[in-house]
Computed example of a mutant assay.
Amino acid sequence: MTDLLELTRKLTAIRAVSGNEGAVAEEILKLAAPYADECYTDILGNLVVHRRGEGKKLLFAAHMDSIGLIATYIEKEGFVRFGKVGGIFPAETINTPVVFQNGVRGVVCKEEKADLQKLAVEDLFVDIGAKDEEDARGKIRVGDTAVFASETYLAGDRLVSPYLDDRIGCIVLLLALERIGKTQNDLYFVFTSQEEVGLRGAKTAAFAIDPDYAFAVDVTDIGDVPGVKVKNHCSLGKGAAIKIMDSSFIAHPKAVELLERAAGAQEIPVQRDVIQAGGTDSGAIHVSREGVPCGGISIPTRYIHSPNEMADPGDIEACVRLVAAAAMLEPQ
């Protein structure tokens, strides 16, 4: 595979708003297929990569979809009103370049009268450079989706990009697949759909696979920037984060123990992840069927759901090592 920066550029450049993950699934399939016994896509668009084994069934999930904008109305002047797909923060999108699924570009703007302190999506619009409504309708239809068109680059040693949430989780799974050696575990690496709008793909995938253990690989918020109101233990540069709790689930003690045992055996730097807001695919998986012992491997990330998210390559590498180590470790 290409290096981390180039792989991130490749996957984040693919437009895959929730419910439209097909293009990114195709690219991930190309990268994952050489390391799998079988790959398939289910009805909801989840990509399942299976490494057969005779032991316990372990599921590792990272979501392919992203937040985005969806065109809802076109003004007579040609400006495009939009709604949000997933968690869009209005104040963080002002003057941000976006690109629609068909390649049409524009910039998010706010109404002149809008109060920045009370800004809502309804106060925003996308200017695609249209002359009028007729011109705009020749380029954009109601229901078309758009994503942030920010750059992927290194700031010092840190990786900055839109949609590290959760293309970086997908990359962690892909790189771990390369490193997994012989194991009795029956491994399912699931690249899920529609996480940002309600953990929907993970719900159906978990029901079908019925794993013995499952782990969501996703970004997590940090507490190492100025002015944080609620302190968070996670920081950039201190390793992979083992999920203890978020708003969607409480990690199962056996899942936490397996990850901590894997980290200890391989001397992988780890920190503990407890957040009060936000969730992961484990929120849906842990209540599948009769219940699944679930944990999480989290990539500490700054500025989540903004056009410019930031992560540390060393933490990403630690997450890759932890996924590979946990995948080869037999649960007790």
Rank of each mutant, 00 (worst) to 15 (best):
L5P: 07
K10F: 00
T12G: 03
I14E: 10
R15Q: 15
R15S: 15
A16Y: 00
G22C: 00
V24M: 13
V24P: 12
A25W: 05
E26V: 11
E26Y: 01
L29A: 14
Y35L: 09
D37I: 06
D42N: 12
N46H: 10
N46Q: 08
R52K: 15
K57D: 01
K57E: 02
L58V: 12
L58G: 08
L59A: 11
F60R: 07
M64K: 11
I67C: 11
E77C: 04
G78M: 14
V80N: 13
G83Y: 01
K84V: 12
V85S: 02
A91M: 15
A91V: 15
T93F: 08
I94P: 08
N95V: 02
L116G: 15
L116Q: 09
A120L: 14
I128R: 07
I128A: 08
D135P: 06
D135L: 03
R137M: 09
K139H: 08
I140K: 04
R141P: 00
G143D: 04
F148M: 08
F148H: 10
A149T: 01
S150P: 00
T152R: 03
G156E: 11
L159N: 09
Y163T: 06
D165P: 11
R167D: 06
G169D: 04
G169C: 06
I171F: 07
L173P: 02
L177H: 11
V190A: 10
E196G: 06
V197G: 03
R200Q: 11
R200M: 10
A205F: 05
F207P: 01
I209T: 01
I209S: 01
D210C: 15
Y213G: 06
Y213T: 10
Y213W: 10
D224E: 03
V225F: 15
P226T: 08
P226N: 12
V228M: 06
V228E: 13
V228T: 14
K229Q: 11
K229V: 12
N232D: 01
C234V: 13
S235I: 02
L236Q: 02
K243A: 10
I244W: 07
I244G: 13
M245G: 00
M245W: 04
S247Q: 12
S248Y: 05
V256W: 00
L259D: 10
E260M: 15
A262N: 04
A263M: 07
A263L: 06
Q266P: 00
P269R: 14
I275H: 00
A277S: 12
G279Q: 03
A284K: 04
I285W: 08
V287Q: 08
R289C: 04
R289Y: 11
G296M: 07
I297P: 04
I299A: 06
I304H: 09
I316R: 10
I316M: 10
A318D: 07
A318G: 10
V320G: 04
Q332W: 02
Q332Y: 01
